[in-house]
Design a protein around this nucleic acid. Structure first.
Length: 899
RNA sequence: GCCCGGAUGGCGAAACAGGUAGACGCAAGGGACUUAAAAUCCCUCGGCCGUAAGGCCAUGCCGGUUCGAUUCCGGCUCCGGGCACCA
């Protein structure tokens, strides 16, 4: 969809109205490229976005999640950074000392993939992308302080990852243990979850295996309780994000129970399980363990069938979603454990639904009162025993089919000494009985697991460890930091290229001085993003990770990013901040005071099935929609051949569905202000945003109208004083215009505080509509009072627009001589006198249905309003003169008459 | 599978605290201007019935609370995000 450009402005080069005397005409039509170039040059020259620590003003640290430099900006970035810029510019208008920095989350897997595809080192690819994307960000006019720019792939950043890793190692927060990874047996390499497709390696197609390898972990579980409790100190976070984090941490209070081994096992010991339903212990009929559990290993030694099953469980991906949706399978081990209270022998099964990473890797199974156990028991004909009775008599005995009520809390039955107890009493009694026997205790269990940070990949922060044959794993001494990553490697997909770099590998053991080898694993990129927001405060400090300026700027006053980061990134950042605090580096408890989670940008996708049955996607820019005569969708065709295509529905913009829209084309065609306005106008920030070419054109049309209106009235309004100090009672048109303008402004001022930018953009449209109507009505001979009202309204419009579309606002502010530089102008104030009125219009309802309107004096009380309402024709028609049953009066709003 | 959201005209949405459903736009239809097109401007625009006045229905579905429910409660359906190695 191409738009024809309007005729070029035909004034001589260098024309400048401001050099001439008196009111002068301004450029008649809107030329975003010229306006935006000039505004950006002005901001750059005046260092408008430079942020310095300053006393006397409240600080406002406005941060958008930094981008991964994937090549070029996508629409999600444009949306994210526009929201950030609106907030940054608005808060500056409100008198805050604003800092809005930007950086690059520059390590990561895509650079290695690009390297494999093009043979370019990840470093070069990354730096090229950064240069291009920085230009794009600048062309969008974001008020970013580029003096603070950082990239996580540079040694002066990641050296502090290494330095702090060593501090945490000293404190025991970092430790080493084995972890499970996806292993591609053909490429002999570890795969990311993303690289596993339907259980196979993405490049080799080989069936992926699980493999245990040594890794470094961060003990985030040590902070589980604080991370959970402190969610209550974050009222500026969306409720849903706090809920998601709380559930992720997953604190449960329960009982750890030991089932002693049956003597036939031939060794001392007990199977430990954790349960939140100790009240159902008397109904346990078997125990189930994960395939990786030591008992499973033991039992499979002399049992080939079981060994085969255990091996089968160990195949496949490590992703929880895969594990949780797979068919539930199990096999008996032939081993037994002893019920800790009844002494009964219970069989031990291996089950693929038991996770080694949660609790003890084993569960007690109570089929009567747990749905998964119930299904499993039915499948393998294991017995079940009803030990809970529902309080409302919903059931007496558990029988197939399963009912949700079986799993609810109730009263214990058939439980020996523990019968007839309610949930908490039963748990307490059973826990203390177990404790007396030394076979159990109450304890807290978290779902949260420690954070494995080792990655068997090249493009990341090297883990600063040296492996010495005699001294073991030795930390790199601080004075040898940073361990610099060579930037000229080209990965080929078969393992980490660092393993082939003798110049990187070879080193001396810091402890004994003998030849040693460097660790080649690198850190998870979530490490990089867990503290970059601190570094922006002091990015130039080469001596320390953080300094006093962090105490000035932090916490981040407003953090903005995608909802997809609601758990991992935000939780790791919170943990990291607390860990730094506990190392004495910060005073801060929580890094982000307020959080705005922006919705995703969606677009429709279009495809055809090829003869081979494959699906071929076409970019929406190549598609033409067919409409019927009512304007409803009647199909879509590919423009190239006119043949029909099918809709693949609406989804996030992605490469695989070829439904992305490149912001660059949008900026070049319509300008940054149109792109920004569209992004803000189309959806509220937290909701998904559906892309629409037509919507963009509507936004462009609006900005053109703003410009033409200003140009049309420019000669009469330029430099006019528009104060209304002596309440001008005069003309009703002036009063009406000012009431409208200030009414809209009042709402816009509320909306922008609520971050509801779509209605702020609407408000700008309403303001223009009101000004245009009033201007057209007044015409050539507009009174001085009307001119002042128009001037006032235009000044308000320009300032309401400014955070969203700063370039056009900047230009108009100067053209109309409101001031030199809009960037420091205050947000407009509502004049309450403009809103005053003697009458109120109220709604008249009969039986809750709208039947008419009622105009009453502002001073009327409830009784008077009721009398007026009952006397009205509309009401008489429905009451037939009979007295109403009930009358509800909501002053200023409505009267409802019930008959 | 588990956790968290969302659903309002042909489309994006709005509705302050339970009080006029659809503000503001987009698309569409009609018209003006133009040699023509583009641009611009004006009018109509949830559905059904009715010449009109007006009436009825309508905020994913089913039910509840209330004088009154898009808003609160219970139960569903569908769509989206996350699930620990994409970032």
């Amino acid at each position: 969809m191409r738009r024809q450009r309007s005729d070029e402005f035909n004034r001589p080069e260098g024309y400048n109205s401001r050099l001439l005397e008196g009111p002068t005409p301004m450029q008649a039509s809107y030329h975003p490229q010229k306006i935006e170039r000039e505004a950006q040059a002005h901001w750059q020259k005046t260092e408008a976005a430079r942020a310095l620590e300053a006393a006397g003003k409240p600080k406002y640290y406005c941060l958008s999640m930094f981008p991964y430099p994937s090549g070029k900006l996508h629409m999600g970035h444009v949306r994210n950074y526009t929201i950030g810029d609106v907030l940054a510019r608005y808060h500056r208008m409100r008198g805050f000392n604003v800092m809005q920095p930007m950086g690059w989350d520059a390590f990561g897997l895509p650079a290695e993939n690009a390297a494999m595809a093009n043979g370019v080192p990840p470093a070069k690819w990354t730096y090229d992308n950064i240069a291009y994307m920085k230009k794009q960000l600048q062309s969008l006019g974001f008020a970013i302080d580029w003096n603070r720019e950082l990239a996580t792939c540079k040694p002066d950043y990641y050296r502090w990852n290494q330095w702090f890793f060593l501090r945490l190692l000293e404190k025991g927060i970092v430790y080493k243990k084995t972890g499970t990874v996806n292993w591609d047996p053909v490429d002999q390499t570890v795969l990311a979850n993303e690289q596993v497709i339907d259980g196979r390696g993405w490049r080799t197609g080989a069936l992926v295996e699980k493999r245990e390898i040594p890794m470094y972990y961060m003990r985030i579980t040590q902070y589980a309780d604080e991370l959970l409790e402190a969610l209550d100190t974050l009222p500026g976070w969306p409720e849903r994000v706090r809920t998601m984090q709380a559930n992720w941490i997953g604190k449960s209070v329960g009982v750890e129970i030991a089932f002693p081994y049956d003597p036939a096992i031939g060794m001392e010991g007990a199977l430990k399980v954790f349960t939140t339903r100790a009240d159902t212990l008397m109904g346990a009929t078997y125990c189930a363990v994960a395939a990786e559990h030591p008992l499973a290993t033991l039992a499979s030694k002399n049992n080939p069938a079981l060994l085969a099953f255990v091996d089968e469980c160990k195949r496949g991906s490590v992703m929880e979603a895969d594990i949780a949706t797979q068919e539930k399978k199990g096999m008996a081990t032939g081993l037994h454990v002893v019920h800790p209270l009844t002494g009964e022998k219970l069989p031990v099964w291996v089950a693929n639904y038991v996770l080694m990473s949660y609790g003890e890797g084993a569960v007690m199974a109570v089929p009567a009162h747990d749905e998964r156990d119930f299904e499993f028991a039915n499948k393998y004909s294991l017995p079940y025993k009803t030990v809970i009775k529902s309080k409302d008599g919903a059931y007496e005995k558990v029988e197939a089919p399963w009912q949700a009520t079986y799993a609810e809390h109730g009263v214990t039955v058939d439980s020996g000494d523990f019968s007839g107890l309610e949930f908490q009493q039963a748990v307490d009694a059973i826990a203390s009985a177990l404790e007396k026997k030394g076979l159990g205790r109450k304890r807290v269990q978290y779902r949260l697991r420690d954070w494995g940070i080792s990655r068997q990949r090249y493009w990341g922060t090297p883990i600063p460890i040296i492996h010495c044959a005699s001294c073991g794993d030795v930390p790199v001494p601080d004075d040898q930091l940073p361990v610099v990553l060579p930037e000229d490697c080209v990965p080929d997909g078969s393992g980490n290229p660092l393993n082939k770099r003798e110049d990187f590998l070879a080193c001396e053991c810091p402890s004994c001085g003998k030849a040693a080898r460097r660790e080649t694993d690198t850190m998870d990129t979530f490490v990089d993003s867990s503290w970059y927001f601190l570094r922006f405060a002091c990015a130039d400090n080469q001596q320390a990770m953080v300094d006093q300026r962090v105490e000035y700027w932090l916490p981040v006053d407003q953090y903005i990013g995608g909802i997809e980061h609601a758990i991992l990134h935000l939780l790791y950042s919170r943990f990291w901040t607390k860990a730094m605090r506990d190392c004495g580096l910060l005073e801060l408890d929580e890094p982000f005071a307020n959080l705005l989670t922006q919705g995703m940008v969606l677009n429709e996708s279009f495809f055809r099935k090829t003869e081979a049955g494959r699906i071929q996607y076409f970019n929406p820019s190549e598609i033409e929609l067919k409409l019927d005569d009512k304007g409803n969708r009647a199909g879509a065709v590919l423009r190239a051949d006119g043949q029909a295509v099918e809709s693949g529905g609406i989804g996030t913009m992605s490469k695989s569905k070829n439904n992305g829209v490149d912001p660059q084309g949008l900026i070049e065609e319509f300008g940054a202000d149109t792109a920004r306005f569209f992004m803000m106008f189309t959806s509220p920030p937290e909701q998904t945003l559906l892309w629409s070419d037509e919507g963009v054109e509507g936004s462009f049309r609006f900005l053109k109208r703003v410009w033409s209106f200003a140009a049309q009235w420019h000669g009469k309004l330029q430099g006019l004083n528009s104060t209304f100090s002596e309440n001008a009672k005069a003309e009703s048109d002036v009063v009406a215009l000012r009431r409208e303008v200030h009414g809209v402004l009042k709402q816009a001022s509320v909306d922008i505080e609520k971050h509801q930018f779509n209605t702020v953009a609407s408000a700008a449209m309403k303001l223009l509509n009101a000004l245009q109507d009033a201007g057209a009505k007044a015409g050539e001979n507009a009174s001085p009072a009307m001119l002042r009202a128009l001037n006032e309204g235009l000044g308000i419009l320009v300032r309401v627009l400014y955070p969203i579309t700063p370039h056009i606002a900047h230009a108009l502010w100067r053209e109309l001589e409101f001031g030199e530089d809009l960037i420091d102008a205050p947000w407009p104030l509502v004049d309450p006198r403009a809103l005053e009125s003697d009458e109120v219009e109220m709604v008249l309802q009969v039986n809750g249905k709208l039947r008419g309107q009622l105009v009453v004096p502002k001073t009327a009380d409830k009784g008077q309003i009721e009398a007026l309402a009952l006397a009205s024709d509309v009401v008489l028609k429905y009451t037939n003169g009979l007295p109403p049953k009930k009358v509800i009066v909501v002053p200023g709003r409505l009267v409802n008459i019930v008959v």
